[in-house]
Each structure stands twice: as structure tokens, then as C-alpha cells.
Simulated scan of single mutants.
Amino acid sequence: MPVRHIASPNVNPRPEQTPVRLIVLHNISLPPAQFGGGYIEQFFQNKLDANAHPYFQTIHELKVSAHLLILRTGEMIQFVSFNDRAWHAGRSSYLGVPECNDYSVGIELEGTDDQPFTEAQYTAVIAAILSIQQAYPHTRRHLAGHSDIAPGRKTDPGPYLDWQRIRRALADYYAGA
């Protein structure tokens, strides 16, 4: 699947000798529960106009990024190289190891906690996960939601993400490989 590239300034090197070993799924919509408009892309580039929507006044100074954003159409936009550290997880821990940004790849799905994701997004996220797992084999058994690595602080990707569908597609791929 083709990927559009837009560089985010919200990136830094991973700590030395820190392999990528986790994929984290998120959801995001800007303004909340609204899709399209390019606001997520602006947000990840620190170009969000605080006057474009009242909600933006509360977030426009935050410095956030993700490795990939998957829009409702299935279009993928890469903001940060997988070899670098994106700022997607915040304070987090996975299997007792803190600072997930250091060793994870963050994939944002355009969506909310209370709406289903699109068929195109499932196709894209499964393809993205498989590509990442091939490039970074340690991630093959480590796929989590933001809510899993920051419980009590984050709720995304939410109850509408069909984890069974994703895990079944991954298992089917590896069974046929």
C-alpha cells in the first residue's frame, strides 16, 4: 500500500541498543468525533491553528507525533521513521518496561472510542502491522492498545477496535507463510 510522508518535528533518536519490540494502536480525531479536514496532520506538525475550533485552544501547544496515521479512507501517512522515536505513548509501560516511546511504533487510526473503524482502515492497519513485524521481528508477539500501556490515563483505541479480526488476520498470514 502506498504511504504518504509528512515529517513531524516531534521526533528524536531512540536510546542506543534499544530494539523496536512493540506496536501500539491508538485512535485520534480532530476536532473530537469529526473526521477529515487535515487537522491531525497539522497537529503532528505543530501547525494546528488554535482559532480553527474551540477544542484546539486546549491542545495546540502539545508536541505529539506518531509513526503512522491511517485515515478513514485507509490512506496511510508516515510522520516519523520507524527507526526513530515518535511521541505517541506519553507516560507508559509495557510488561514492566517504562517509556514505550523508546521501543515502540505508534499507529494512529482516525477514529473515536465510540464508533467502528472502516474496512479500509482494517486492511491498511493489518498491512502496516505485517510490514513492521517483518522489519522488526521482536514486534511479532507484542501488539497493544494505548489503553493497555497507559491504563487509567488513556482509553484508545477503544472498544470498537476489532482486536480478534486483526489478530486472526495476522495468525492466518503467518500460518500460510
Rank of each mutant, 00 (worst) to 15 (best):
E75P: 00
F82S: 03
L48Y: 03
P116K: 02
G90D: 03
K63T: 14
N101D: 15
F82E: 10
I70L: 14
V105D: 00
S81V: 05
V64A: 01
I70T: 06
S81W: 04
F43I: 06
F56T: 05
Y103I: 08
L95P: 00
G96N: 12
E75G: 00
F79P: 04
N51R: 14
P54Q: 09
Q57G: 14
Y55G: 00
V97F: 05
Q115H: 12
S81I: 04
G106V: 10
G90F: 01
Y103V: 01
N46T: 11
D113A: 15
I77Y: 09
S92D: 07
L69G: 09
A52N: 04
G74L: 05
D113T: 15
R85D: 02
L109F: 07
H67L: 12
I107W: 10
C100K: 01
N83T: 14
H67W: 11
T73K: 05
P98W: 07
R91Y: 10
W87E: 12
D49I: 02
V64T: 06
L109Q: 10
R72A: 02
K63D: 11
G90Y: 04
A52I: 08
P98N: 10
E75M: 00
V97L: 12
R91N: 13
Y55D: 09
F56R: 06
G74A: 10
Y55E: 13
P116Q: 05
H88T: 10
K47W: 04
G106L: 09
N83P: 00
L109Y: 08
D84Q: 06
L62G: 01
S104W: 00
L69D: 04
L68C: 10
N101T: 08
P98Q: 06
P116S: 02
E75R: 01
F43E: 07
Y94H: 15
D114V: 11
G106C: 11
I59S: 03
F79A: 03
G96M: 12
G111L: 07
E75T: 00
F79N: 04
L62C: 07
T73E: 13
D114F: 14
A50K: 15
M76L: 13
S104H: 02
H88P: 01
F43A: 08
Q78E: 12
G111Q: 06
S92P: 10
R85G: 00
D49L: 01
L71T: 13
T112E: 11
S65Y: 09
V97G: 00
Q57D: 11
Q45I: 08
Q115E: 15
H60I: 02
G96I: 09
S104R: 03
W87A: 09
Y103Q: 08
E108A: 14
F43K: 12
G96A: 13
N101V: 04
F79L: 05
H53K: 07
H67E: 12
P54I: 13
S93P: 02
H60F: 14
L71E: 14
K47V: 06
H88Y: 08
V97R: 13
N51K: 14
D102I: 08
H67G: 04
F56V: 11
E108Y: 15
L68I: 14
F44H: 04
T112Y: 10
R85I: 02
S92M: 05
H67A: 10
S92G: 02
S65A: 12
V105L: 06
